[in-house]
């Protein structure tokens, strides 16, 4: 297979000036088999190996690039991973206090999909988009509304294709500086001011290890819904057992809490996703450097074999010519 392709390439691109003496017989024999546009230049007897040599050089360069990308991702990952693990302490108290209510059924759902700006990181962006789509399908229905807020270029590109009508906002260039809380808080503020919601559903890839990411949904309820839920009992009902300091009412507290919860969850989500992105990029680049290596091995083998074949043929010709003269 590889040999055939190689021969075809070689024939097409063989340079005629390199061949000094034209041999009409060979050219005639060739032309009867090959169609005119693919005809070999006059006197071509062997496949040119230049194409393969170039190809090998290209593959080697690609391998170098992917290796470098892997290194970069690996070194960035370490810093982000620590920050991510620390940021988990921000939302855990909220879940302990308010509980998570992924199954809550409300009218206005806003799906916050967190993706990356850059590609070459395996399937993590497609995973978040897929989960978002499924959730969109699940939450939309008669008298119900479900819209997207998309973080990151890649998620935007994928969601524009089939559900651009439901996109409300897109946010990009988030990762120009390392992600910090202030930035995410400003962003969360912007989102809260610009969308109406009963429930916000934040979707991101939770970082488990360098090779494992779990698509995760975090639900934040609006104050009104949260109050209704707390009256209905369950985890939210326990909120009444807390003593409230100052003159604030429960509704005010809940509003503050849910806003703060959103910014915390978004912060953690953005970090988790950034961490997963780097991990995924690391493993993707690792496997692509391995593939480049395999390809290089195959090409080298083909190259050497072809070279050897042409040398052997030439030797045979010389020897048989000499023996014909002797005899």
């Amino acid at each position: 297979m590889a040999m055939a392709a190689l021969r075809r390439e070689g024939r097409r691109l063989l340079l005629s000036p390199t061949v000094p003496i034209p041999s009409p017989a060979a050219a005639a024999a060739r032309s009867s088999v090959v169609s005119p546009p693919e005809m070999a230049p006059l006197g071509a007897r062997f496949v040119s190996t230049q194409i393969v040599r170039n190809r090998m050089k290209t593959v080697k360069n690609i391998q170098k690039i992917t290796k470098a990308m892997k290194m970069v991702a690996a070194s960035k990952l370490r810093a982000v991973q620590t920050r991510t693990e620390n940021s988990r302490g921000l939302w855990q108290p909220f879940t302990a206090l308010l509980g998570d209510a992924p199954s809550v059924d409300v009218k206005k759902n806003v799906i916050v999909t967190i993706t990356s700006d850059k590609g070459l990181c395996g399937g993590i962006n497609s995973t978040s988009v897929k989960v978002s789509r499924a959730l969109h399908k699940l939450t939309s229905g008669p008298e119900k509304e479900s819209t997207y807020v998309v973080l990151g270029e890649k998620g935007k590109v994928q969601l524009v294709r089939d559900s651009k009508k439901s996109i409300e906002m897109t946010i990009t260039e988030l990762q120009k500086n390392p992600i910090n809380y202030t930035q995410i808080a400003v962003l969360a503020d912007d989102i809260l001011k610009n969308v109406e919601y009963d429930a916000l559903r934040v979707i991101f890839n939770k970082f488990q290890s360098v090779i494992s990411f779990k698509p995760t949904v975090a639900t934040i309820l609006s104050p009104e819904v949260a109050e209704k839920e707390s009256e209905a009992g369950g985890k939210m009902g326990d909120l009444d057992s807390y003593e409230i300091e100052g003159g604030e009412t429960k509704a005010e507290i809940l509003q503050n809490l849910s806003e703060f919860q959103f910014s915390c969850v978004l912060y953690n989500g953005a970090l988790e996703n950034a961490c997963s992105e780097l991990g995924a990029r690391m493993s993707a680049m690792d496997s692509s450097s391995r593939n480049a290596g395999d390809m290089l091995d195959r090409l080298t083998l083909t190259y050497n074999r072809t070279r050897q074949a042409s040398i052997t043929t030439e030797l045979i010709e010389i020897i048989s010519g000499a023996s014909a003269l002797e005899g």
Binding site: E168, T170, T172, N177
Partner: peptide, 14 residues
Amino acid sequence: REKVHFSVAKWADG
């Protein structure tokens, strides 16, 4: 740690 940089775009009618 308080650098803010991102770009927001609103969408209307797709």
